[in-house]
Design a binder for these strands. Sequence first.
DNA 1: GTCTATATCAAGATAGAC
DNA 2: GTCTATCTTGATATAGAC
Lengths: 178, 178
Amino acid sequence: MTTELSPRAREIVAVARQLLEEKGPAGLSMRRLADRVGIRASSIYKHLPDKQALEHAIVSTVFEELADEFEAALEHADPVGTMVAIYRRYAKDHPHLYRLMTEQPLQRDLLVPGVEERASLPARLLVGDDPDAGRALWAFAHGMTILELNDRFPPSADIDAAWRAGFDAFRRYAENAQ
Amino acid sequence: MTTELSPRAREIVAVARQLLEEKGPAGLSMRRLADRVGIRASSIYKHLPDKQALEHAIVSTVFEELADEFEAALEHADPVGTMVAIYRRYAKDHPHLYRLMTEQPLQRDLLVPGVEERASLPARLLVGDDPDAGRALWAFAHGMTILELNDRFPPSADIDAAWRAGFDAFRRYAENAQ
DNA sequence: GTCTATATCAAGATAGAC
DNA sequence: GTCTATCTTGATATAGAC
């Protein structure tokens, strides 16, 4: 459980997160992590059971960070647009974290309880009271984000325009539903 | 270049594809592949320069297969709906192939020339003459697909309904644009 | 075009001393 | 809570004989 992490474990997780952001998933090995922390790889296992736990602890910090930003966006004039912009921005600034967070099934019992819900609650508020449309919008945002990260759009593509088109489609959908 | 693959190389690629589908990316090693083919790992390098080339050869076969299915869908009454259904279905039936195809930047010079375009041409036809909306729809479809594969929707989510909501949003968007 | 043999490197994880 | 030493497993890839 990430909830009961010791202060020392939290330090290690913070270093691991930095390492991942810098070097990518292949760069996050227990040995390299230990090097940065200044201890031996075997010592990490005194603080965290295994690599999976480490990764999920990192993901928890990301969820918390995103949730904070989303909640702050509720104050803005256009919260929906702001949150989508935050989402896109965050992925661009932290591509490896974004991948870690989305590119694999989560083991939810390894997360800090509640963080996933906190980070997804704003998304559920986006499209009126329609959770299905909310998930569809999330899928669109994730699709755009990850396809861009993976360089899957042709060089000629106007990615901003694609974001606008999809966003408009969902906005109109939400308006007509009311 | 995948274009100039020898018949023997093609056999190896076909076995590799099967292996990937069965065991996932971690299961696709040169050794295991060689085992299945009935030769030694080192012999593979007489037919394919490296693993990257092997993976891109597999991806090319997938593009071709998908393109064929998409083009056949043009005959249907509702080609748009049919293609989206094909897309979703294909990913569900071949999750590892789908991941291989989408979860990394492609090195396009390693693909059979033209296959990517063939597979994406139907997608571009979906939303009128608006390539931005077409890309947005693709992003939506990919997002839904990969989030479902990665088990990222909560158990309570009605995934069919989310597909419908997003699809409706884009359909209405396309109708209003005309 | 296949083989044997090997280079090279890396990973996650554990045992047990201190 | 840290260490040394080690286990176990795996990978991609090359050299050179046949």
